[in-house]
């Protein structure tokens, strides 16, 4: 079923702050097998000019995708999440995410399209820190495949 175009441009309220923990960053870096010391060693991160350990570039997805859940689960939008696959993902960074950040995400529906019965939804997540500084923007394209018996 085609999604309602009037949802384009709709923004959802900012999420509660997510506090980025250094051990969570370490856990993520280990899970992707990345031994870059900037993720685990404060001195190494500071030598690169960062105030504290930083997170790998895709770490923030866990936060923005959870925020996008507000959109996905919006009963008025009516997306069938059981048919959703992740199409594209993009990030634009103002600075890297780092330990101690308290991040909020504001999600906005950028576009809604229907192609060959598939609903395609682009969600933009603007991530800000506790001082209101923009940290990163994440764009997530979700594709809800057409139901077989439409």
């Amino acid at each position: 079923m085609a999604l309602d175009q009037s949802f384009v441009g709709r923004s959802y309220p900012p999420t509660e702050p997510y506090e980025v923990g250094r051990e969570k960053i370490r856990e993520f870096a280990e899970a992707v097998g990345d031994a870059n010391p900037a993720y685990t060693d404060t001195e190494a991160a500071q030598a690169l000019g960062h105030p504290d350990v930083i997170a790998p570039p895709t770490f923030v997805f866990a936060i923005t995708f959870k925020a996008a859940g507000q959109v996905v689960a919006d009963p008025q939008l009516g997306l069938d999440y059981s048919r959703v696959v992740h199409g594209d993902q993009k990030f634009a960074y103002n600075r890297p995410v780092r330990a101690g950040d308290r991040l909020t995400v504001t999600s906005t529906i950028e576009t809604i399209r229907t192609m060959a019965g598939n609903d395609i939804l682009d969600i933009r997540g603007e991530v800000h820190d506790q001082d209101g500084e923009h940290v990163v923007t994440a764009w997530t394209k979700l594709v809800a495949r057409a139901a077989e018996e439409a």
């Binding site: 992707v32 570039p57 993009k90 960074y93 764009w139």
Partner: peptide, 21 residues
Amino acid sequence: IRVVTDWVGDPGAVVEYGVRF
């Protein structure tokens, strides 16, 4: 992205990154 971050050393040097699955 590790091919990029290992090359430049500082993962904070990544300004944009996007893929299609």
